[in-house]
Nucleic acid binder design. Structure first.
Lengths: 168, 168
DNA sequence: TAGAATTAGTTACGCGCATAATATTATGTG
DNA sequence: CACATAATATTATGCGCGTAACTAATTCTA
């Protein structure tokens, strides 16, 4: 691949990161949230209470980041932490009523943001987008499939969309 | 759009940002660079010397960020700043020889990263990728010309709200 | 031409996320 | 059982990028 195309891709990913995050920030601000916190609320809303290590895995960020995120969300009353009965090292994180209510607002805003993001793209592209982005993420992910330079030829995601996403 | 799909898109963008940046960080570390600095070097390598305001525009980040980036890259000897002759407020930023040499290394690494990122994707998708990502970026970009399509039927932010309406 | 408005750059501060080091608890093994 | 190892969570620290407030220089305008 020549530099022009490589740069077009890398730069586009970089700019999309900055702008998508900035847009999320301005939409989250009225709810009293900073970008990153919404992902934690949505994860708890989706899969229920879990310990911080599971949150770290689900959100794709490191345990110290989860410590800070949970601390702030607990301070603002949207989540609660209680010791895990089976493991005294772990603490279970769960939504409060306020947090569940806030998660609902975040979900609505999340749809607005996604629609805004893909405005003007062909429907087929929009349908494939999650699969494409997820495949790209897996390609550069060193967290779970540690391949620093040895790119294994078998870990690709089918480009034709994710499985059973044909709802409604 | 239903929440499932919206979340798939937003979450995928978020995760791709984290992972792509992290991968870039590990590849840039041997060169003594932190992610973000490579974009500045590449921009100067592409379009030659320019003032910081132009860098801010080209990189898509705010002037204070450029101040910090240029200060650190100047400290490590890869760029140089000199006063602009025609405008005594501005300072012209340019690559040093060391910076030009480093930019060459960054360009080669940039290609490796891009190829790694799109591994396994169909060639057609790879060819369309820059356009898709750029379109998405423009859709959520509030820095310049907020929405290129103009048609946004009451998407965001309650109309009567006092929500931080940014200068336009 | 004097004063207002704009622009370039900086400083101060906050947040998210990362790594490194540490304390505490679980779990494997001799 | 004792002890080495792994796992959970935390603190400390650093970087990138953001906003707000500020200085200094330029440009518009009455």
């Amino acid at each position: 691949m020549d530099f022009e195309h490589a740069d077009a891709i890398n730069q586009a990913v970089r700019l999309l990161s900055l702008r998508h995050r900035a847009r999320a920030a301005t939409m989250l601000a009225p709810l009293g949230l900073h970008p990153g916190q919404e992902a934690l609320l949505l994860e708890l809303d989706r899969n229920g209470a879990m310990i911080q290590a599971q949150l770290s895995e689900a959100l794709g960020c490191e345990p110290p980041s989860v410590t800070l995120m949970t601390r702030k969300l607990e301070a603002s009353g949207h989540i609660r932490r209680r010791p895990a009965p089976s493991d005294r090292r772990a603490s279970i994180v769960e939504l409060t009523d306020s947090g569940r209510e806030l998660a609902g607002q975040v979900k609505r805003m999340w749809c607005v943001l996604a629609e805004e993001t893909v405005t003007g793209l062909p429907a087929g592209t929009v349908a494939e987008l999650p699969g494409i982005l997820t495949a790209m993420t897996a390609n550069v992910d060193t967290r779970r499939s540690g391949d620093p330079h040895g790119r294994r030829p078998g870990l690709v995601a089918e480009p034709g969309g994710t499985t059973t996403d044909r709802a409604r």
